[in-house]
């Protein structure tokens, strides 16, 4: 088990920096931004592939001056910087990421598409379908004196409401059909069983239409929760939602550029696909394709690509309240086209 990387110092005030590897995506923004080169990005691809067991980054405790810039620049909340036990994210002097990911409960129909695609399993859905018996009304009657347990009704029933019961009849465990059960909670009173029964043993009357004014509207009840602590604002939920109920604000705005002078090695390499925290990369026709709508421009792919084929061009970052001029200068290095 790897110990959590942490730096702590007590002088006029107590300062501590803690790396939370479970939230880290290995993008290396922290090591890019660190003014004292105290953060080394580990072998991200081997880690992502499970070939080595290490934290994504390594903090050099002797070099770190505990300025907190890395913690402010990390869009994934993977570095926690505290001054006198207070997280700088809560201190008014420090920068704030304006990130948001939410699912509007009013427009959500609980289809669950977002749950399936979320790369971080950050969405929880609980759904209750209406009981069929409240909306389909009728009467059924099976005359067991007439029934020969042939099983035709069971086979044709589209609602799986009929079961022919097999019971032991002697000591050799020989089974024989000698019972029939109709589950009224499943029956939709379609009448197919009655029509197929060779013995006229089934009576089914559908009274749904007769009572239609008294039957309530079908309603799907549900609950959807997006765990912002796990969310990395990739935008998958927003892209997949058929009801436009999900909205995501990403950390950066900009674009991915595939360099024209270098060649993507596609299926032989797929490093970009393996390190992408957003599942935004696919290898199509032996070439890497990155879906910008699902990408957070973290740059993990760009660093993992041995060909330097992927360039990140961040045009804007949604980090506000940068009050220090020197911090502003440092942070602005994250903007612009990444160098090869």
């Amino acid at each position: 088990m790897i110990e959590m990387a942490m730096v702590e110092r007590n002088e006029n005030e107590k300062r501590s920096l803690k790396h939370k590897n479970e939230k880290c995506v290995g993008c290396g923004i922290c090591s890019d931004i660190c003014p004292t080169e105290s953060i080394r990005l580990g072998p991200v691809l081997p880690i992502a592939r499970g070939l080595v067991n290490m934290d994504y980054i390594n903090l050099n405790k002797d070099k770190c001056v505990l300025c907190g810039l890395c913690a402010s620049a990390c869009p994934f909340d993977a570095l926690e910087f505290k001054i006198d036990d207070k997280n700088i994210k809560e201190l008014e002097e420090y920068p704030k990421w304006e990130l948001e990911a939410k699912i509007d409960d009013e427009s959500c129909i609980y289809c669950g598409h977002c749950v399936k695609v979320c790369p971080k399993d950050a969405i929880y859905l609980q759904k209750t379908m209406p009981e069929i018996s409240e909306f389909m009304i009728g009467e059924t009657e099976i005359d067991e004196d007439k029934c020969i347990y042939c099983g035709m009704c069971q086979e044709i029933c589209p609602a799986d409401a009929i079961t022919i019961d097999d019971n032991d009849v002697n000591s050799s465990n020989q089974k024989i059909a000698n019972g029939i059960t109709l589950d009224e909670s499943k029956c939709v009173y379609c009448g197919l069983c009655r029509r197929i029964c060779p013995e006229n043993a089934i009576k089914i009357i559908c009274t749904t239409c007769m009572y239609r004014d008294e039957i309530p509207e079908l309603e799907i009840k549900g609950n959807i929760v997006l765990d912002e602590d796990l969310c990395i604002n990739c935008g998958w939920c927003q892209e997949i939602c058929p009801k436009d109920a999900a909205s995501v604000t990403k950390p950066f705005e900009g674009e991915i550029i595939m360099d024209e002078e270098t060649v993507c090695k596609g299926d032989s390499c797929h490093a970009c696909q393996d390190v992408c925290p957003c599942n935004a990369v696919s290898i199509v026709d032996n070439k890497s394709e990155i879906n910008g709508d699902l990408c957070v421009l973290c740059g993990a792919c760009s660093k993992a690509c041995p060909q330097n084929h992927i360039l990140i061009n961040r045009e804007k970052m949604n980090l506000n309240n940068i009050r220090s001029k020197s911090w502003e200068k440092h942070l602005s290095t994250l903007i612009g086209e990444s160098s090869k």
Partner: peptide, 28 residues
């Protein structure tokens, strides 16, 4: 993933024909 590198008597050996120039080994 090309099987171009393998172990022989504790050393890494390259099969040149299998190398696909992905350069993952260089980088890592």
């Amino acid at each position: 993933e090309q099987g171009a590198l393998f172990e022989e008597n504790g050393d890494v050996v390259l099969i040149r024909e299998k190398c696909d120039d992905c350069d993952l080994c260089i980088q890592n």
